[in-house]
C-alpha cells in the first residue's frame, strides 16, 4: 500500500529517490538500498530530527516466501519532539553481510549492533568494539539464523561433570 505523503516521506524521497515508502496499519516504512543506508540515517537524524534509535534488529529471510535478500536490517527511529516514528529497512546478502555502523549517530546502536552481530553474524563497519555480547566468545555459530537448529548443535552438553567425590 502506498503511504500518505508526509513531510518526512517527501523529503526522504527527494533526497533518496531509490527509497521505497510503504505503510501498514499506520506505520510508515522506508526501504533503502544498503549502499545509501549510512547517508540516509545521517540525513534522517540531522535533517529530519529523528533523534532516537528505538531499536535495531535483523530478520533472516532464508525461508520467507517472496524474499529476494537473505537478511533484512530494521532500524526503528523516533523523533522525540514530534512523536513521529519511522521504520527504515535495508537488505544485505551472503557472503559477508555488512553495513556501516550507526554508532556515530546514536550511542544506543552500540550494544544493539553487537547483538545483531552475535545472533545473525552481520558486520557493522566502523563499530568501535564489535564483539559477541550474549554468547560466549568461543561460540562459533550465529543462532538466530534460520539454518541453525533450535536445540543447537550440542554446545549446551559440552561441559565437565562434577561428582560428589570431586566436589
Amino acid at each position: 500500500m502506498d503511504a500518505m505523503p508526509t513531510r518526512t516521506t517527501s523529503e526522504l524521497k527527494r533526497a533518496f529517490p531509490t527509497a521505497e515508502i510503504s505503510e501498514f496499519r499506520g506505520q510508515v516504512r522506508a526501504a533503502v538500498p544498503v549502499s545509501s543506508i549510512g547517508d540516509c540515517l545521517r540525513f534522517l537524524k540531522e535533517q529530519l530530527g529523528f533523534d532516537m534509535l528505538v531499536d535495531l534488529t535483523c530478520v533472516d529471510y532464508l525461508a520467507y516466501r517472496g524474499a529476494t535478500s537473505r537478511f533484512g536490517l530494521v532500524y526503528l527511529l523516533l523523533s522525540v519532539d514530534r512523536g513521529e516514528r519511522l521504520v527504515v529497512r535495508t537488505f544485505v546478502d551472503d557472503p559477508q553481510p555488512a553495513v556501516p555502523s550507526a554508532v556515530p549517530l546514536w550511542q544506543a546502536a552500540d550494544w544493539l549492533e553487537r547483538e545483531v552481530w552475535d545472533l545473525f553474524g552481520i558486520r557493522f563497519e566502523g563499530h568501535p568494539d564489535l564483539r559477541r555480547i550474549v554468547l560466549p566468545e568461543q561460540f562459533t555459530a550465529h543462532p538466530l539464523r534460520k539454518d541453525y537448529p533450535l536445540q543447537g548443535r550440542g554446545e549446551r552438553h559440552n561441559f565437565p561433570v562434577i561428582t560428589r567425590a570431586e566436589g
Binding site: L135, G152, P160, T163, R164
Partner: peptide
C-alpha cells in the same frame, strides 16, 4: 527452554 543455550537440568553437571 529447550533451546541452544539452556542447560537441560543442572543435575547433568553437578550433584
Amino acid at each position: 527452554f529447550d533451546t541452544y543455550s539452556v542447560v537441560q537440568g543442572i543435575d547433568r553437571f553437578i550433584p
